[in-house]
Design a protein around this nucleic acid. Structure first.
Lengths: 205, 205
DNA sequence: ACCTGAACACCGTTCAAGT
DNA sequence: ACCTGAACACCGTTCAAGT
């Protein structure tokens, strides 16, 4: 039967996971689909737009949690923290995804609306739009930068498999990364709190 | 006379500035030096190590300001803010430099010590080493992410030169970027302040 | 409509051979 | 010591031609 875009994207993601972004070439992708490279150009305009679709796929369904019953003063913080954890989890599912998302975002091809969700949470809590956008972008830069370094480090660590002795690292690195991730998110949320109307403050209660 | 490493690096930086990172190829670099591509491999091990030297060159001489006469409680903030502005200014001198620095950092080839300076300022102000490292990294991710987007946007804007009408953008974009940069840095510094011993607090004065 | 064949204009890197 | 020539094993993309 004929090649479908869905199948192309699925195979591309498999190559990404198994061999990484630099090995995800149009020729190799075509090979895995038992087709010549030129055949791909009937289904996609070029490599960049294919990569953009991969990013959309990776980020699809990422949602901000609903408002809970707790006081609004804590709510924004819990929601942004949970969203940040979910985004990291999603990125960690695909090799080199943080690098890929950051690249596509930088040239405006995909993932550009990623900071809209955290920004609107902050605006709903009383932050003005300009500060909310900057704060959301700051959060996103941290997330992509941190996860990118995690993924790059994991790859360097995978090369040390044929190393001299059995080192006690492995699961440890992932845990340490999660801890420093949470700490960085916490720092940024603290910074946001300063710019937010204080709940116990005289002119707000 | 014979080719020198200094000359190679200087020419590579010139190509980077004029044509961008994707056009900085070994073959084009060799052409600009009136030499064949294979000749470059007598002077550098491979392209990556050459890029690492470019990063070192771009970041060379970047320094943290000395302590001033003001109270320590404000000092760390002024020093980190000034350092952040200096780093941005240095990055803006070379096209695609934020992308380049982030890439080299991610694989541990250059710029890895970049967060050492802000971390030690925070430690000198009383923050414990673990939190100081996380805070410094958070600052750095923001800086590289923000400047990368600035530089990418500037390039997209340069393509709109043959656009329909004379738009009022141009100098405006750079100013807006500087404003949001300062705002983001401010937010991160606010987050750091929360983790720092408070000067007016009972158990510190 | 969908794919192949063949080409174009490139890459980074190696290495024997020249000087 | 320093560089060239020639090759190897690749890239993304286009496009006439096949079915």
């Amino acid at each position: 039967m004929a090649l479908t875009k869905t199948e192309i994207i699925r195979t591309a993601l498999a190559i990404l996971d198994d061999y990484g972004l630099t090995d995800l070439t149009m020729r190799r992708l075509a090979d895995n689909l038992n087709v010549k490279a030129s055949a791909l150009y009937w289904h996609v305009a070029n490599k960049q737009s294919l990569l953009a679709e991969l990013v959309n796929q990776i980020l699809a369904g990422l949602t901000m949690s609903e408002s809970g019953p707790e006081p609004a003063a804590q709510e924004w913080r819990r929601r942004l923290a949970a969203w940040s954890m979910e985004l990291r989890a999603r990125l960690l599912e695909h090799r080199d995804s943080a690098d890929l998302v950051a690249s596509m975002r930088a040239i405006g091809l995909a993932g550009t609306e990623l900071s809209a969700a955290p920004s609107s949470v902050l605006q709903a809590t009383g932050m003005d739009p300009e500060h909310a956008d900057v704060a959301a972008q700051t959060l996103l830069y941290f997330i992509l930068g941190h996860v990118d370094e995690e993924q790059q480090r994991a790859q360097l660590g995978a090369l040390a498999k044929a190393g001299p002795a059995a080192e006690p690292t492995g699961e440890t690195t992932g845990e340490a990364a999660a801890v420093s991730y949470r700490a960085g998110i916490g720092l940024i949320l603290d910074g946001m709190a300063v710019a937010l109307p204080q709940p116990g403050h005289p002119d707000s209660g």
